[in-house]
């Protein structure tokens, strides 16, 4: 996934004196035609077409197994057009709602809960961490930075296996430590007991969040360190002359100056949290009792295990809308002027 600040500066016009380089304009035209036309065709086929098809599929009762039953691209015939029926079904909150609708509700709820837990937890770890890493001796910074860099570049599948082992009920390190501390055998099913809750949040969800955070905090830490290093030293010196201590410096100087970066990082963290899949699929596969089932898991199983591609497309459109709303809020917030 790649998001970024989308800036739209005017593109400087290429000032060429017409006529002086005869044949040059022609060469440029050929160059542009030979590169831009293939790119446009490529993007039309591999970008625009799948996007449009994805939205269209959500209006069909579509299964790839039945494809070829007639109609355009297998849509129609045995894969009938049903309009907005999938979206109407999503709004069925009654007790008799079909299982896939209930699973969708559960997934949406879990995804939002996941993202709204991950972002504040991430920020409250990465900001102090970045400030501390920025405050130590310059020569030691790369050394310490490496410890928080390594999890970022580890395959998330590897992260999930490691943490699954830590949370293992019999062999896991966590229960081992608890056993050592309490003096009696501890065998908590961190990832498998649906009745285990903490403040109403399933413990299995908290466990996957722990693994997710462990892998993810390096990103924002690096981004915040870079932002901290761009703060003019004169501002900090001025604060020091005024007798400000470290904590006051953090709250009243650093945080306000980093506000635009913090906002952007929070939004990007939230967007990628909405799309979480790898760690959860490997650690819990959405269980226990769908307590860690997130939208992408819901999409994956519906589309590729149960052949409900129309329904899965509708769910992916909901995911798109979630991302879109957050992105729009981001552009809104960042449009305000930010100046040191």
């Amino acid at each position: 996934m790649a998001e970024s600040t989308i800036s739209t500066q005017p593109v400087p016009q290429v000032a060429r004196k017409p006529g002086i380089f005869s044949g040059r304009d022609r060469a440029i035209k050929i160059f542009l035609a030979a590169t831009v036309i293939p790119m446009v065709l490529y993007m039309a086929f591999w970008s625009l077409f799948p996007i449009l098809w994805g939205f269209t599929l959500s209006l069909f009762e579509y299964s790839a197994r039945r494809a070829g039953a007639g109609g355009f691209l297998g849509m129609g015939g045995a894969n009938p057009y049903i309009g907005l029926q999938h979206y109407v079904n999503m709004l069925d909150f009654s007790e008799e709602a079909p299982k896939i609708v209930k699973q969708f509700h559960q997934s949406l709820k879990t995804t939002v809960l996941f993202a709204f837990l991950v972002v504040p937890l991430n920020m409250s770890i990465t900001l102090p961490l970045a400030v501390m890493l920025d405050s130590i001796h310059r020569r030691l910074q790369p050394f310490f930075r490496t410890f928080f860099f390594l999890p970022i570049v580890t395959a998330s599948v590897g992260v999930a296996i490691m943490w699954g082992f830590i949370f293992h009920p019999q062999l896991g390190l966590l229960n081992g430590i608890l056993t050592a501390i309490s003096g009696k055998m501890v065998a908590i099913q961190w990832l498998g007991d649906p009745h285990l809750k903490f403040l109403g949040i399933p413990v299995a969800l908290l466990a996957v969040i722990a693994a997710y955070l462990w892998q993810d905090i390096g990103y924002n830490t690096l981004i915040f360190i870079a932002a901290l290093q761009s703060i003019p030293q004169s501002l900090r010196d001025a604060a020091k002359v005024d007798g400000v201590n470290s904590l006051q410096m953090f709250w009243h100087v650093t945080i306000p100056l980093l506000r635009p970066t913090i906002l952007l990082a929070a939004v990007l963290t939230m967007i990628s949290a909405f799309q979480v899949f790898d760690i959860i699929q490997v650690m819990t596969n959405g269980g226990p009792q769908d307590q860690t089932r997130v939208l992408v898991i819901d999409i994956y199983y519906n589309a590729f295990r149960f052949q409900r591609m129309g329904w899965a497309s509708a769910v992916s459109v909901v995911l798109f809308l979630l991302v879109l709303v957050i992105s729009l809020i981001q552009t809104r917030l960042l449009r305000t002027e930010w100046e040191y």
């Binding site: 993007m43 625009l48 790839a64 591609m309 995911l319 798109f320 991302v323």
Partner: peptide, 28 residues
């Protein structure tokens, strides 16, 4: 060149679309 702005805007717009939306059509 002609069409430069719309093409560039389209490229920027595709970055907003989660991969999960194009995953199913991509597979098909």
């Amino acid at each position: 060149f002609r069409g430069k702005q719309p093409i560039f805007w389209f490229i920027l717009a595709t970055m907003m679309i989660p991969m999960q939306v194009t995953m199913i059509p991509g597979y098909l």
